[in-house]
């Protein structure tokens, strides 16, 4: 196996001039974004700013209309989502589409099997398969171990969000894109989720979409603000707090009407 050392200094994620058009409407346009390995980055913006559209393009759920995406130094702009997953990219979805007919255990197993890939995907399951053990470990980490054999359609909203994170953590992700992981959670469930996020290994790069400015500024070392599909501002949480543009369009907009 050739070991590639040339990329060790590359950025985790580098985005140049990304745009996504639906018909005549640009959901995002001219986005540049650079995230260092291990960085915790929040992406802020009011509803409709293009945050989820940007994530969809980054993961390959939809293809970019313009621009280039680089993961750890390798261009992935033309790669389908399943290839990007195998490069260590993971994401959670704001609206979880889970497999209703499968159990939590099966779902996590598939997440592990999907990342590992290879011909074993088609072989029968044997007792003591290490992928099953990994699935159970993920359930433990994500806090859904007590519902391992429950079908995902029977889970509560909070449990589904936790399962989403369990899926995203399969097989040591290198970069995690979290799309409003706390949305819709009860006050009792939020601390559990925050603790889970805080416990992520320090070398994992995390990009977090968060609607709630307070949470975003607390958990992240740098912030990018999207507005109307364009990058409005970037900087440390302090910079962003002091940025007048951000105050006008985002803070003013979100709290002022």
């Amino acid at each position: 196996m050739p070991v590639n050392h040339s990329h060790t200094n590359a950025n985790a994620l580098e985005v140049r001039g990304i745009g996504k058009r639906f018909g005549g409407f640009w959901a995002v346009q001219d986005i540049d974004l650079t995230v260092r390995p291990g960085e915790r980055r929040a992406i802020l913006g009011p509803n409709g700013a293009g945050k989820t559209s940007l994530f969809n393009v980054l993961t390959g759920d939809t293809s970019a209309t313009t621009g280039q995406i680089t993961l750890f130094g390798d261009s992935v702009t033309r790669e389908p989502i399943n290839k990007r997953i195998q490069r260590g990219l993971r994401r959670t979805y704001q609206h979880a589409h889970l497999f209703n007919g499968l159990t939590v255990r099966d779902t996590l197993f598939l997440a592990v099997a999907g990342v590992r890939g290879g011909w074993r995907q088609v072989l029968p399951l044997r007792a003591g398969d290490d992928r099953l053990a990994e699935a159970e470990r993920l359930a433990e980490v994500a806090g859904v171990a007590d519902v391992l054999d429950r079908e995902t359609s029977e889970l509560s909203h909070g449990q589904r969000r936790q399962l989403e994170i369990g899926i995203a953590l399969a097989e040591k992700p290198k970069i995690l894109l979290l799309d409003e992981p706390a949305a819709g959670l009860s006050p009792a469930e939020r601390p559990k989720l925050s603790a889970l996020l805080m416990s992520l290994p320090k070398d994992v790069t995390v990009v977090l979409i968060e609607h709630d400015m307070d949470i975003a500024l607390q958990t992240s070392e740098s912030v990018s603000v999207l507005y109307n599909g364009r990058m409005l501002a970037e900087g440390s949480p302090d910079d962003i707090m002091r940025n007048e543009d951000v105050h006008r369009v985002y803070i003013g907009g979100a709290h002022g009407h």
Partner: peptide, 25 residues
């Protein structure tokens, strides 16, 4: 249907897009 392939088939039934997002063709 209990094999990995069988599970994937059922996952495709429920949410094909999400199967791809797990890294599976």
């Amino acid at each position: 249907v209990r094999s990995p392939l069988g599970l994937t088939i059922q996952a495709v039934r429920d949410a094909p897009g999400r199967v791809l997002a797990l890294g599976i063709s």
